[in-house]
């Protein structure tokens, strides 16, 4: 079970490797794309500036340096879809990133792009992005038609479902799951909204909107109205947790955000292949702190530390037990 870390530039490599990263993923957005597409049309689900590498030479330098440390590098082409024109641009980029830069795999959501990559027979493999919304074993079997090496399960797949899927898929492909940082209130692959800075994420934007309930039962009592209103407030609190506790951090500067640390012993047992730390766009400090936390827990689980002890350690690492005990900061519901 590997630790997959986000990276933005080669300067972050040394620290991430030293902290325990075992695989890396990044975005790549060349100037040509920026010149052609603006606004809501993102190449890889991150704002076009500041989240990705931008030149092939930078990409080659990163992959060369990572490979010398034994770390593979994956590149995100994970937009929900690319039009016919965009697909040709992305295929050209994929060809160059694979054959000239030695990128190890592309993280892909669009089934059309998976299909095209499988036909192109590049050296780089394909990882099915969580945005492809692969929620069941049959969906993986369908996508295996396009030769992926790995499937990244969406955040909403439960521990029991992960175990069942991993058992069913066997050695046909690897399974990656979410471990730390960003959440998503909706099923990411079925969310047709933009995170463009002008409007922000739809899920967090909803919390600031005026709302009105309409009851479809017999009598809309004051008590029922309060019940609905309280549930809405709970939901908004849950969304706040998904959004990194309002993008907050602990007194020592450690980042908040959705977390699967307590589930590591279970995930190790099920044979999951990789644990994803989200946040290509995050600061180097947040990336470093995230990798350190995950590596600490994975190390203990690998060495057979009992699950309750691992969970206790995970909660202490997050430095905010009240948030852990809220139940809203967890990717997975863990039986202690």
């Amino acid at each position: 079970m590997k630790i997959l870390a986000p990276i933005r530039e080669i300067d972050e490599l040394e620290m991430l490797h030293a902290a325990g990263a075992e695989e890396l993923f990044c975005g790549f957005v060349p100037q040509d794309w920026l010149d052609r597409y603006q606004g809501a049309v993102w190449l890889n689900r991150r704002s076009t500036k500041g989240s990705s590498l931008e030149t092939l030479s930078d990409m080659r330098a990163l992959t060369d340096a990572a490979h010398t440390k034994g770390l593979p590098v994956f590149v995100t082409f994970n937009a929900p879809y690319y039009t016919a024109e965009q697909t040709e641009l992305v295929m050209d980029l994929a060809q160059r990133l694979s054959e000239e830069c030695g990128v190890d795999a592309f993280i892909v959501s669009d089934v059309n792009l998976m299909l095209r990559l499988s036909e192109a027979r590049l050296h780089a493999g394909t990882h099915v992005s969580s945005v492809a919304a692969t929620l069941n074993l049959e969906a993986i079997r369908f996508l295996l038609n396009f030769g992926p090496n790995r499937v990244i399960l969406p955040r909403s797949v439960t521990l029991a479902e992960i175990a069942s899927i991993k058992k069913g898929v066997g050695s046909d492909c690897e399974i990656e799951v979410f471990m730390l940082n960003d959440g998503c209130a909706f099923e990411e692959g079925f969310c047709a909204t933009t995170h463009h800075h002008s409007v922000g994420a739809f899920c967090t934007s909803l919390s600031g909107m005026q709302t009105d309930f309409e009851w479809h039962g017999r009598y809309f009592s004051v008590r029922r109205r309060a019940w609905l209103r309280r549930n809405l407030e709970d939901y908004r609190e849950w969304v706040w947790y998904l959004n990194g506790n309002g993008c907050g951090s602990t007194a020592k500067g450690l980042p908040y955000g959705p977390c699967g640390l307590c589930a590591v012993p279970d995930l190790l047992k099920t044979g999951v292949d990789s644990l994803k730390i989200v946040g290509r766009e995050a600061s180097p400090l947040k990336k470093l702190a995230s990798v350190k936390m995950v590596a600490d827990i994975v190390h203990r689980a690998r060495h057979g530390v009992p699950k309750p002890v691992v969970i206790e350690r995970a909660i202490s690492l997050r430095q905010a037990p009240e948030h852990c005990h809220s139940g809203y900061m967890c990717y997975y519901k863990v039986d202690a």
Partner: peptide
Amino acid sequence: QTFLLEHAYTNSP
């Protein structure tokens, strides 16, 4: 099936 929640985009920029 018991209720509908309407949001008005009052925080639109």
